[in-house]
Design a binder for these strands. Structure first.
Lengths: 339, 339
DNA sequence: CCAGGAATGTACAGCGCTGTAACACTGTTG
DNA sequence: CAACAGTGTTACAGCGCTGTACATTCCTGG
């Protein structure tokens, strides 16, 4: 046995009276090993308490069995739930997940694509929020990569998302079906460079146009930052200066929570005076009062499809970037009940 | 260059006309390298786009530069926030974090201590919920380990927690100071084997006794499961059959959210009729209506202390298990305002 | 002026595993 | 019955890096 106390393959081999490779074959479940030999090796493994050194295996095979999941914040409800799904899928396929928090930092996002992952993981699932796809394509070399969320063309990398235009239209239709006619959109974020919001705004507008309703730019609220309080602030402003609205389509559940707070302060009743719909269908939607109706991306499917695409890349599939849309639905709760 | 396209140390060495080890020294920032040599090596590194293979480095050094964080669910608000703090601390010290979700599964918790981590990480920070400390001590070999949360004696492993008895007493005192006299406790969970709740119940009882108030066992509510809905169900039952109460100390914020829902259904006003205090001070406390007062463990400190203890163990410190208490406070919000 | 050390660099073994080539068998086939 | 395919096993190189031992040069102080 090695002096550091750990049992190595060679120790087992010696004890069982076979070669290292045979032990390796047993450990890896290789078929062509005599049952009798296998039993002898297994006995030695158990007796010595042998555990393979994964680092050594990785160096030998060139596979790490790990993927990185890079996202802005692990404690954001949506990302937390997504992380859980990804971890479960990956785990069921024998992979482990390293969480990489970029915290919305541009340098951290670049690092995800470069040195940080060198030889550490077999692939990366990455939700960028600061750097553009063009730069991703430029920085990205041969590491298998799947992007999450809306990305602008030209896209040379695999990515998975929901149909944001359609989803925003569905949410707006849900409100229209409930008899709302003066529907606002909360909100565009200053300095937000992702396409996500533009697509959602577009879907919202399309639904209004289809319904023959006017587009009032003053009902499309701009928010100063990403915190719920920023959203509340924007709603407060709109309630005093802006045009009337009887419903709000929100960019995410946290913005919706901020909107609920501002409406409450103002004495507006939800959903009677103003209906509110969130986005992400995170656990938080259950906890607000009233509970939030929310656009629900199929997170499980999102994680599964992303992992499958990545898996193919890790198995050597090459070729142009692939584009996958996963389903969504409107999860109706009290803040915007069904018609 | 290697046929697989990756640049290796030896390629850089060849190009710069020095030995592999000198390149290694430059890469690792070793002091005693001639500036001129260093520059030449650096040039070769840049020209070839060399990135060290971390797996190989790990095999050579025996250090992985990674720790595992094992917890029940990454999408639980408290654990999500804790994960974020741990990831930030670890990252600032040059470590990376692997998230291990046990999902409250006993086998998964055992696996954390055994083969799963073999040679993969340098240490583990682990919040057990299913397996007892005795078993942890039995399974745990030489892998550096720090436990989070309440653990029963005898403790042979380092662990970090808040003073749950004291914290529960502080929360109860907060309610007493607000003039509440019929304070309930929500809740003991059926089949919960962790000590956490017993400690909290104890602190709650101590505070009542010190205040000269009677202990009414019927005000100590038992909950059928860990979901907020289970807590709501328990509160509903108490509202119809049980003794009156004018305040509730809750096991965590999610239970408190469940309690708020049940109270609302019943027409009880919070905090006028019943004050509610949560536990964990998770982001969720901001989103409920009214916003939850909550016992706030110093999560940042918790993460820091846990990492420091682990760090010492990873650096070879041996000896008996150490016990660390981190501070907490009562974060007062609308559901139980200060006196 | 020389022993003793610090500064700078090299050669090579070895971390613990897996892939590959090769070998010794056994049975199968034209 | 030679040729061959398939099975079970071994020996050993090699994954890409770092640690160790050692060579060489350059200072320093007695």
């Amino acid at each position: 046995m090695a002096s550091n106390g750990r049992v190595r393959l060679v120790d087992v081999a010696e004890r069982a009276g076979v070669s290292m490779k045979t032990v390796s074959n047993v450990v890896n479940g290789y078929a062509h090993v005599q049952p009798e030999t296998r039993a002898r090796v297994q006995l030695a493994i158990d007796e010595l308490g042998y555990r393979p050194n994964l680092t050594a295996r990785r160096l030998a095979t060139g596979k790490t069995g790990m993927i990185a999941l890079a996202m802005p914040e692990i404690d954001h409800p949506y990302f937390g739930e997504l992380a859980r799904h990804v971890a479960e899928i990956a785990s069921s396929r024998g992979y482990r997940v390293i969480i990489e928090q970029t915290l919305g930092d541009e340098a951290a996002e670049r690092a995800v694509l470069r040195d940080r992952e060198a030889g550490l993981v077999d692939g990366v699932i990455f939700q960028p929020v600061r750097i553009a796809t063009l730069e991703i394509a430029r920085l990205h070399r041969d590491l298998p990569l799947v992007l999450l969320g809306e990305v602008e063309a030209p896209v040379t990398t695999d990515h998975v998302m929901i149909d944001n235009v359609r989803a925003a239209a569905d949410v707006t239709d849900h409100l229209l079906a409930g008899g709302r006619t003066r529907i606002g959109f909360l909100g565009m974020v200053e300095g937000d460079i992702t396409m996500t919001n533009n697509r959602r705004l577009l879907g919202y507008q399309e639904a209004l146009i289809r319904a023959g309703l006017p587009l009032d730019p003053r009902r499309m609220l701009t928010v100063g930052g990403f915190a719920p309080e920023d959203a509340a602030e924007a709603v407060r402003g709109a309630l005093t200066d802006g045009p009337e609205f009887d419903a709000l389509v929100c960019r995410d559940d946290r913005f919706a929570a901020g909107a609920l707070a501002a409406l409450r302060e103002h004495g507006a009743s939800v959903p009677d005076d103003v209906a509110v719909v969130g986005w992400d269908d995170s656990a938080l939607a259950e906890w607000t009062w009233p509970a939030l109706s929310s656009l629900a991306p199929d997170k499980h499917e999102l994680a599964r499809v992303a992992f499958d695409l990545l898996s193919e890349r890790m198995n050597g599939v090459t070729g142009v970037g692939r584009h996958r849309i996963v389903p969504h639905s409107v999860h109706a709760r009290a803040s915007a009940p069904p018609a």
